[in-house]
Design a protein around this nucleic acid. Structure first.
Lengths: 247, 247
DNA sequence: CGGGAAGTTGAAGAGCGTCAAAAGTAGTGG
DNA sequence: CCACTACTTTTGACGCTCTTCAACTTCCCG
């Protein structure tokens, strides 16, 4: 299964016939790359974008491959990961609608990316986007800000991986997902968990069994309710926050 | 003990009387922020820089504090870390001469920073540096490139923390230090380890005891020799590389 | 409805952490 | 130069958290 390119109409709502404001209908506009751009600037971006559909498991690119594109997720969920030669996997991030994907000024991808759900990406040829920096310095500024935020998040993740217990890791994970829903203008509470237990495990530096056991334990303590395997209701936010030990 | 500001003369060699090329004498010039700048551009930077001395243990800034400055390390070593409320510490990075310190476009520091050895920083008021972006776009491009590299390194560190064994972690750590010495035009082999065992432990998500035991074991196997506590001779690079499981 | 994947639960074991003590190192002052 | 102290590092014994291996259950999609 491979990513398919579709007409740029649904995705970032980049319908080129929609002249005055091509991204107008994008419901995550204020989170994306495009947020700070004026309408004519957004049009320049729209000129180089393509929308890409993906399905669960679709590989988007692989670590080490020439980094010809960067992306903005506009719908669905994506996982980023690295592998060790013997197959051990580390998931370094989950992306949702609005998240930027790819490292500017890097010639090869530093990690692999796959779809988790069905979804859509805005795809930009990296060279062309970088060329636009000259014309629209705001773009570069925006990307530098995004990169700084990602670096801060990466530090938090290192703290989690290196120093937190299993229960603290899972509690932190649920709180992060909840917060991200809020940032995407969704309700904070029934937390949507589209990724598998083994994705969560590889993200938290645990095994699927430990993740599952920890969920069960939190459920027994009444801190959460599992509506189904991918919907978690947070009942006791304070307890969860206390467990997570900050963040 | 607090960081002291010294006349900008030794540090990045930013002696303003040294008119034509204020950073000329900087032996890590090609690694710093300043690398891509022309002489007049470098002078504009030199106008806003201050040199700051630090000692072992000197706090440079604390997590959560307003991020009024960004830095370039020009001599010595620095540790970046985050703390949990109960005191557990995660060291998110070690910086050496040439390394950039601080996140542009972020209002507060995401981590704390302390000196490990004595050393010197080039200190830039963040606002003023960001203002220079308009005038010298190359600067922003440079910072975006540096941020991308740091993000890639952060992913590697997550893989290490989440999925590697103690021996793999220590082996990787030694290889990273060795590589960094090479990038700083130093011999690859007697690896200088200026940080304490407990710094290393907090960087690798281990305890000092485990770090020490792992060193001892590698010594017994002949892979390394401990010249003293802060000088490690790598005898069997291949074995170490195999142990590290890539990177 | 049935088969395969994903998730849960249980029992046993390993790797690393914890606690404690000894050995080595560095800095200070006589 | 040596002795004294305080700290870092090393080593040892033991314990606990999380992993491993395995069986069972639930979910999902044809």
């Amino acid at each position: 299964m491979t990513a398919t390119i579709v007409r740029p109409s649904i995705a970032c709502q980049i319908d080129r016939s929609d002249f005055p404001d091509p991204c107008r209908k994008c419901d995550v506009h204020d989170l994306t790359l495009c947020a700070p751009l004026s309408r004519p600037e957004a049009r320049r971006l729209a000129d180089i974008v393509a929308a890409v559909d993906f399905e669960p498991g679709t590989p988007l690119f692989d670590e080490g491959e020439p980094a010809n594109h960067v992306f903005n997720v506009t719908a669905g969920a994506v996982r980023l990961y690295k592998l060790l030669p013997d197959g051990r996997r580390s998931i370094t991030g989950f992306l949702f609608a609005g998240d930027f994907l790819g490292l500017p000024h890097r010639e090869v991808y530093a990690y692999s990316a796959e779809g988790i759900t069905t979804g859509i990406l805005c795809r930009f040829p990296r060279r062309q986007l970088e060329a636009l920096f000259e014309e629209i310095p705001k773009l570069e500024k925006r990307l530098l800000g995004l990169a700084s935020n990602e670096l801060a998040a990466a530090q938090d993740q290192m703290l989690l991986l290196g120093r937190k217990t299993a229960a603290e890791k899972v509690a932190t994970f649920l709180l992060i997902l909840s917060r991200r829903q809020e940032r995407r203008h969704l309700p904070a509470n029934p937390v949507s968990v589209p990724m598998s237990r083994s994705d969560i495990a590889d993200y938290l530096g645990l095994t699927t069994e430990t993740v599952s056991r920890t969920f069960t334990q939190m459920k027994k303590q009444g801190a959460i309710t599992l509506l189904d395997h991918s919907q978690v209701q947070i009942n006791d936010l304070d307890r969860l926050a206390a467990l997570s030990e900050s963040l």
